[in-house]
């Protein structure tokens, strides 16, 4: 991110020198800083409301209930995890929390699931197939309602911000399904893991 940020500013100044719009660029600095604060202010209200509602979903056990419904699916997706291993429950919970936009809750549960999968992993330095699948689930990040995006639209005066809700849901679903299929296909071509020999001993 350091280089990207630097590059954006460098390119701006170089382009301005080329197009002769340097005074516009200076004005953009002032106006941009002002806009950021306005956006953050508007964002605060909507984010606070949404996370308030989602906290109720978490505390009342609704998120846990949905993750129980998803457990059989999770078992299919993670064939190397033994029955009754806590990893399966954590994975379902991680997905449900992500779906509700509770990323603060989703990440610690996801990491806990990753640790459970690491216990089952035979090469501790290299990701097992199941670990790659869990990661693909999280990088694709299926989400029910894009609350932040709606907040930004509203902050900028949108009259019909919820218009993008279902289209976004379609796209996030396509991406999520593709991520699962892709990771399962790549698994077949991925170089096999080498079990660790004489290194740090067995971790079990």
């Amino acid at each position: 991110m350091n280089y990207i940020w630097f590059l954006i500013i460098l390119v701006s100044i170089l382009s301005a020198a080329y197009t002769g719009r340097i005074s516009d660029v200076v004005n953009a600095v002032m106006k941009g800083a002002q806009t950021s604060v306005e956006v953050a202010l508007y964002l605060a209200g909507i984010m606070a409301f949404w996370l308030g509602i989602m906290k109720i979903a978490e505390k009342s056990g609704l998120v846990a209930f949905i993750s129980r419904l998803l457990t059989p699916v999770a078992r299919k997706l993670f064939p190397d995890v033994p029955k009754d291993n806590p990893a399966i429950g954590d994975i379902a919970m991680n997905f449900s929390a992500n779906a509700f936009g509770l990323s603060n809750a989703a990440t610690p549960i996801g990491i806990k699931a990753m640790k459970e999968l690491q216990k089952l992993n035979k090469d501790k330095k290299s990701a097992s197939n199941d670990m790659c699948t869990l990661l693909a689930m999280n990088t694709a990040g299926w989400q029910l309602v894009p609350a932040t995006v709606i907040a930004v639209l509203v902050a900028n005066g949108s009259k019909n911000a919820t218009e993008i809700v279902f289209p976004t849901l379609i796209v996030t679903t396509i991406t999520f399904m593709s991520a699962i299929v892709i990771v399962k296909v790549l698994e077949k071509f991925s170089p096999a893991q080498k079990p660790e020999v004489n290194q740090e001993g067995d971790n079990d």
Binding site: K115, M131, A140, T172, T175, E187
Partner: peptide, 21 residues
């Protein structure tokens, strides 16, 4: 968080899924 150094196919899967997205 678990000290994995080799990402294996996870990286490629993530990038492919981003492109599809």
């Amino acid at each position: 968080s678990v000290g994995i150094k080799k990402f294996r196919h996870a990286l490629l899967a993530g990038i492919f899924a981003d492109i599809i997205g």
